[in-house]
């Protein structure tokens, strides 16, 4: 394992050591302030997504590596809680509200946030495999972005929405990780968001029907 990859992982683990694998008391207060408490749904969703993640990780990397997938998921959950809390603090400051019931009961928001957290973890570990196996490890490249979107059945356009706020909310992310997220962002913007079935087309249609003065470009354009 190269020193740069080790640094990347150690830094991530170090940053997350104080973050538990359960919602902190601050995050719990945000949950309790909601009109509808999202706690049970959050936990249930994590359980379901962990099963999907572990199963697909095992298929991609090999059944003997399932435990590695579990470790990555566990780190991803810590990162997810950490960023969620920071995002809510920033939104509380910006909007002067404490009830985020609608956002915290939005399944797409949670799934996108967790996917982004896992992408951060996977990117940190990705370096290990590349350096360890001389860049030829096909199994590891199988779990590279946009693999996570497929595992979570998540639209790229929804994943895109969380990236900037995610980077803003976690100033401890390394330069390499931020660069990786930027690469994901560019891939979505240039290609993935324009694939058939993307929610972007429905949004463009609604914009157009909403009487927008400007002429909306056709999807082909």
């Amino acid at each position: 394992i190269s020193s740069s990859a080790m640094t990347s992982i150690q830094q991530l683990k170090g940053d997350l050591i104080s973050t538990g694998d359960k919602p902190s008391s601050n995050l719990d207060t945000y949950f309790k302030n909601c009109t509808v408490d999202p706690t049970q749904d959050v936990l249930k969703r994590l359980e379901t997504l962990e099963k999907a993640f572990s199963q697909r990780f095992g298929q991609a990397v090999g059944p003997r590596c399932v435990v590695l997938g579990e470790q990555r998921f566990s780190l991803g959950v810590r990162q997810y809680y950490k960023v969620m809390e920071a995002m809510l603090k920033s939104e509380e400051k910006r909007l002067s509200v404490q009830n985020f019931s609608k956002l915290l009961n939005d399944s797409t928001f949670h799934t996108s946030l967790l996917a982004c957290a896992l992408e951060v973890v996977m990117a940190a570990y990705g370096g290990v495999s590349r350096y360890n196996h001389g860049g030829g490890d096909q199994a590891e490249t199988d779990v590279c972005f946009p693999w996570i979107l497929d595992v979570f059945n998540l639209a790229a356009f929804d994943f895109y929405k969380v990236i900037e706020s995610f980077i803003k909310a976690d100033p401890t992310l390394s330069k390499d990780i931020v660069k990786h997220l930027e690469t994901c962002e560019n891939l979505i913007m240039e290609r993935i968001a324009w694939r058939t079935g993307s929610p972007l087309f429905e949004l463009l249609r609604q914009e157009h029907e909403g009487g927008a003065a400007e002429q909306v470009e056709t999807p082909a354009s």
Partner: peptide, 21 residues
């Protein structure tokens, strides 16, 4: 410390992006 370009305006937070404001 990184070169990421933040493009969102001050009135755009994660709540607006998920239509929850």
């Amino acid at each position: 410390s990184h070169d990421y370009h933040f493009g969102l305006e001050d009135h755009e937070g994660i709540s607006e992006l998920f239509d929850c404001d």
